[in-house]
Computed example of a mutant assay.
Amino acid sequence: MHVKIGDVVGRQSYKLDVLFRVIDVKTTADGEQIAILYGDEVRLIADANCSDLVVVDEIERNSRKLKEKERIDQSYFLFRQDYQLLREKQEYTATSSYSHNEEFFHLPGRVLHVDGDPLYLQKCLSLYEKIGVPVNGVHVQEKEMPEKIGELLAKYRPDILVITGHDAYSKHKGEVDDINAYRHSKHFVQTVRNARSKVPHLDQLVIFAGACQSHFESLIRAGANFASSPSRVNIHALDPVYIVAKISFTPFVERINVWDVLRNTLTREKGLGGVETKGVLRTGMPFRKHSSQ
């Protein structure tokens, strides 16, 4: 069938399990048309013969989006519950068990989100804003991330760095532990290494790295605090936001249990993992409201 750039499609051979956006169509030497695909809700990149693709109509897309929204809303609800408990605990501690009346202010951790997909970046920035996390977002192609990360860290000086985009494991390219069998894992790994050469300590710069099916172990060894994907499964586009928001709003004197970070994500421990990490929130007082006089 005729498939064009921008179409939302599914693969017949996979029973339309994942919806993709067509970002490019190439013709091989023997005349076959191959589409390059980006996951519509998951951070997966794939290619497929156009003859295997079905353009998904708006009714089906809307039906899937409604189900997806329910999952996202549930994760957001759970996150807000956690956030409220964190705030109450922090207020109790900061005011010496409520013995002081002064109002105080919070300084959540600043995030630099570097994303290989501009559409996913915008989705994430909208959620950061909704949650209240201070963030700068930059779109950078995955292959260019290693060389650009140094200047970005110098420019934005974040407390938390997110390195994500699209990835995929290909069985025909090698075994599951061979990083060369992955689309962009080696670029993510080198980006983490380059970032760690600037800020070596895991608690001075908290790093999330990876996308769908990424080589989790290599990313952790390179210096990421949290990464995807331990079971080589697809991760949701918004999963990095829930992880770093939890870190951003956890006080710097507290250590974060890894499960506490993962349980409100959409993919959980099959798609995400990490190491024990300190929070980055700081509380100050007194808070003075600006006078209009």
Rank of each mutant, 00 (worst) to 15 (best):
V3D: 04
V3P: 00
K4I: 07
K4C: 02
I5P: 04
D7G: 01
R11M: 15
K15H: 14
K15L: 09
V18D: 12
V18L: 10
L19T: 01
V22L: 07
I23A: 02
D24K: 15
V25Q: 13
E32W: 05
I36T: 11
L37D: 08
E41D: 03
I45W: 03
A46V: 01
D47H: 09
C50E: 07
S51I: 04
L53M: 05
V55S: 01
E68G: 11
E70G: 03
E70K: 10
F79M: 06
F79W: 08
R80P: 12
Q81L: 09
Q90A: 06
Y92K: 13
T95H: 00
S96L: 13
Y98Q: 08
E102I: 12
E103R: 11
F104W: 15
F105C: 04
F105E: 14
L107T: 11
L107I: 14
G109W: 02
G109I: 00
G109N: 01
R110C: 07
H113Q: 04
V114L: 12
V114G: 07
L121D: 00
L121A: 07
Q122V: 02
L127H: 06
E129N: 11
E129Y: 01
K130I: 00
I131H: 08
I131F: 09
G132D: 04
P134Q: 11
E147H: 07
E147P: 00
L153F: 02
Y156K: 08
P158N: 02
P158V: 02
L161H: 01
H166W: 04
A168C: 13
Y169L: 14
Y169C: 06
G174S: 02
V176M: 08
N180P: 00
Y182N: 03
K186P: 05
H187P: 00
F188Y: 14
F188C: 01
V189E: 12
R193N: 03
A195C: 10
S197W: 02
K198W: 07
A211L: 09
Q213F: 09
I220P: 14
I220H: 01
A227W: 03
S229A: 15
P230E: 05
H236L: 06
Y242D: 01
I247T: 05
I247C: 04
N257F: 04
N257V: 11
V261L: 14
L262M: 10
N264D: 09
N264Q: 08
L266M: 15
L266W: 06
R268T: 03
K270T: 09
L272Q: 03
L272F: 11
G273Q: 11
G279L: 12
T283C: 12
G284Q: 05
H290S: 02
H290F: 13
S292Y: 14
S292M: 10
